[in-house]
Design a protein around this nucleic acid. Sequence first.
DNA 1: ACCTGAACACCGTTCAAGT
DNA 2: ACCTGAACACCGTTCAAGT
Lengths: 242, 242
Amino acid sequence: MPARAKEPLSRDRVLAAALEVADAEGVPAVTMRRVAEVLDCEAMSLYHYVDKKALLAGLTEAVVGEIAVAALDDLPPAADPADWRDVVRRRCLAAREVMLRHPWAPPLVATQPQPPPTVYPLFEALVATMVDAGCGYELAHRAIHSLGPMLLGFTQELFEPTADDEGAASPQAEAMALAMPYLARLAEVAVHEAEGTIGLCDTQAEFEFTLGLVLDGLEAHRRVGAASAVGAASAVGAASAV
Amino acid sequence: MPARAKEPLSRDRVLAAALEVADAEGVPAVTMRRVAEVLDCEAMSLYHYVDKKALLAGLTEAVVGEIAVAALDDLPPAADPADWRDVVRRRCLAAREVMLRHPWAPPLVATQPQPPPTVYPLFEALVATMVDAGCGYELAHRAIHSLGPMLLGFTQELFEPTADDEGAASPQAEAMALAMPYLARLAEVAVHEAEGTIGLCDTQAEFEFTLGLVLDGLEAHRRVGAASAVGAASAVGAASAV
DNA sequence: ACCTGAACACCGTTCAAGT
DNA sequence: ACCTGAACACCGTTCAAGT
């Protein structure tokens, strides 16, 4: 604590403190006064480095940078370029792990006017992998748009079906089951499938499923595009429906 | 104005006022005092119906309800069940149009602890369409997870490459181009493709592309699943790679 | 019953003043 | 130069008081 009070303030120290507060107490707790408290100084001192907007932008930059590093780190450098899907998949899963450690981050990133510059190295690596595997730049561009939301954690749990204690069926739940028979049946099936596992929905498996859908679709486009550059989209549509 | 002051307050009037403020000035402007101003009353009067948390939850409920209505409305009731992809696609695009009119909504929805009940009719319709087309409930379940983020607008623009005035290449931009050759080339290609169009990225086209990837992938799973219920996932992986 | 005035704790931010 | 005390306008919220 005395050591901390000694070293001079800096943008990096301020952002590190903000990250600490966000991880421990969530984004709403990241106030100028709270961050200053962590740094053993007054709120007004922070204004030499950031105002509130810059503080949140810096926090976004930091967490996205952490994602980029994690996604780029743990890779053996792809023996065969044809394995591009596995390389991209592992990068996306590594990104997801970081986001799971910072569950407050996705909505924060989503409210920023610009993506932080720390995403670019990650995008560069993804484009490099795809282009080297024979994807055109047009396809790589679309892939960035398709995968971006998954990389930045926008794909999250939407559907936590209230973990019903079975048996205690509320009259409200019964009314819903009558009005929505398909969803009611789906819930039954989900409960049955989830026997013995942790939650009702296996979000990890569902993330990987969606990711696989996107990657397989992109691969199909790559193959068609490699053969002929024209009419690729419709040809793929026909091919994947076979 | 006098008429407005006359009619008594109600939860619905409060939420309508909040929606008005959000559309006009964004979510941060939705304060108890600002909403009260629109209703010609004092902030404290709102507390008979909502506190701040309930106000934002109600706002989420309202906007997601609007999506659900829009997505369910404009549909001729699907002559052929085999056209399930077209039906689902149109619903997703209708949902997107609503979100584009309320650009403040996605991050708000993302910060809510639970999805609002107003999504359920939409999920019901999607599951019904898929199951009637021969998808199993397991696949329909995964589809909800794959499509949910797209329906609720979590897929948004991440990559607005700063719309550079060409020619005025900053030294910073040049440094980035050297460090990230693939992204630099991708930007060139994107600029070339965008000649004569509005923005650098055609977000509508990119949304539709990703949506098509997901729908085609689901259709491939449906076909394999219809043939044999076991080992569907790996079979599809092989099939879509052909 | 429905609404409100006064008050409290907290927020972002400015600015003149300290060292 | 770097930091701070006092102050301002604005939040969410409580509660006793009005009608």
